[in-house]
Design a protein around this nucleic acid. Structure first.
Lengths: 120, 120
DNA sequence: CTACACCACTCGATCGTCTATGGGAAGAGT
DNA sequence: ACTCTTCCCATAGACGATCGAGTGGTGTAG
């Protein structure tokens, strides 16, 4: 098929939102990487795809910045797994990123000419 | 000032949406770079900032891909300016990117636990 | 004992954005 | 005439997030 390339894989469009999504997922409780990815994929109705090559760097990034902490434990399937817990700073960051996300989404809606509903 | 860095400039969060915004702006009519940037900033109520270092590469990118065409003309202020026009392929691309944007925004809303209003 | 799902991690490449910098030309003010 | 500001286009280098592909290890089921 003399086709060009399909430029859009899901993740490429909204770079920068993965951290927020991970943080949000951890509000429910501690979780390890594999689970976090599955939860995001499922709750997004499989629209979002979380690649491992994006997930683990993100997790380490969040930990470096002090937004999550980690500890080793056993997964639901009795395997060794690194669990992540949201820190106080992480909660603040989540609030900040969420409000920024809403602001940006609304701004884009304005330009696109929709009534996207500010939703506050 | 012993300040670190402010990680979030607006554009960094939604990488990939600039093309869509530019395309959308051109639906109204041909325009040159400087104007396109102003229109996006204004209609977004100054939430979005369009840096020249992002705008011109984006414009050239869009032209390379055949989504816009360009021609030299005179601006409203009687200055030399390169105008851009949406092509038929550009319109199709805009439709595709818009629907993708809506899908992603909705998916993120689901994960974030909001009722962001699917809006169709 | 083999196959597979689960779990973590890493590397190279790519791509879009940013900051910074360059130039040129019109119009206003001095 | 000169300068200053605003408008307008453009590019270079650095940066950071993502992707694709690959490594390695371990319970569990057949």
């Amino acid at each position: 098929m003399a086709r060009g390339k399909q430029v859009d894989k899901s993740g490429e469009m909204l770079q920068g939102t993965l951290d927020m999504l991970v943080l949000r997922t951890l509000v429910t409780g501690d979780a390890h990487g594999h689970t976090i990815a599955k939860v995001i994929e499922r709750t997004s109705e499989d629209v979002l795809e979380v690649e491992q090559g994006s997930l683990y760097p993100a997790l380490h990034r969040l930990e470096d910045r002090g937004w999550v902490s980690s500890y080793w434990g056993a997964s639901e399937n009795n395997r060794k797994a690194k669990f992540y817990r949201l820190t106080a700073a992480g909660r603040k960051q989540l609030v900040a990123e969420t409000s920024r996300w809403r602001q940006m989404a609304r701004a884009i809606g304005l330009v696109m000419g929709e009534d996207m509903l500010s939703g506050q």
